[in-house]
Simulated scan of single mutants.
Amino acid sequence: MTREDKRQKKSASRLYAVQALFQMEHSDQSFETVRKEFENHRFGAEYDGVEMAEGNVDLFRSILENAVNWQAKIDQMTDRALVAKWPIDRIDPTIRALFRAAGAELVAADTPPKVVITEFVDVAKAFFPEGREPKFVNAVLDHMAREAQPDAF
């Protein structure tokens, strides 16, 4: 597997993690149920002739577990990065899931914060290709990253 293949699998895992966190919040399905569904039915699956990307299972699981285990801390970091009038519960649910997934990597992974920011801004672009959301995501994640890993800047 080439370095680019590995990078693409990690990127796909981040996108899947955002989708899984969104699904968990809106369906009241358990962590285990959603994790298994994604690993068994989404990674590399084909829908209407379109093949879904393979993901890095270890990274996907790590992001999900850390997002769940550290959710309060991540949500507090996100709230501090947002203006006072926009607490996290008023944020679009897809972006909220994105902040939780990115926050999971920022607080509990070895990934450099600039890589986390770039990767999750790309995820935002996938969900909101025409909107201003990617710039918003970039600004909030930059603030969160500086709080979570100040020595990296």
Score class of each variant (00 low, 15 high):
89 D>K: 08
8 Q>D: 14
39 E>Y: 07
130 E>S: 14
49 G>C: 10
21 L>D: 10
112 P>I: 09
14 R>G: 15
135 K>P: 00
71 Q>P: 01
97 A>S: 07
9 K>L: 12
53 A>V: 09
73 K>E: 04
37 E>T: 09
66 N>Q: 13
141 L>K: 05
153 F>G: 15
78 T>A: 11
53 A>T: 08
8 Q>W: 05
12 A>Q: 15
23 Q>S: 09
75 D>Y: 00
16 Y>L: 12
83 V>W: 04
45 A>N: 13
135 K>L: 03
85 K>I: 03
23 Q>F: 10
101 A>I: 06
86 W>P: 01
94 T>R: 02
128 F>N: 05
111 T>W: 00
31 F>A: 12
90 R>F: 07
63 I>S: 12
132 R>N: 13
81 A>G: 06
72 A>Y: 13
149 Q>F: 11
22 F>M: 13
51 E>F: 03
12 A>T: 15
1 M>Y: 09
23 Q>A: 15
86 W>R: 04
70 W>Y: 15
29 Q>D: 10
100 R>T: 01
1 M>L: 11
11 S>E: 14
15 L>D: 06
118 T>V: 13
126 A>W: 04
67 A>N: 06
74 I>D: 02
103 G>W: 00
98 L>E: 03
134 P>N: 04
116 V>H: 09
37 E>S: 12
65 E>K: 08
45 A>T: 07
140 V>A: 03
22 F>A: 09
69 N>I: 05
142 D>F: 09
142 D>T: 15
77 M>S: 03
68 V>P: 00
127 F>L: 03
33 T>L: 03
64 L>K: 00
16 Y>Q: 08
135 K>F: 03
71 Q>K: 15
86 W>E: 02
147 E>S: 02
39 E>H: 09
65 E>S: 09
25 E>Q: 14
123 V>M: 05
73 K>I: 11
23 Q>E: 11
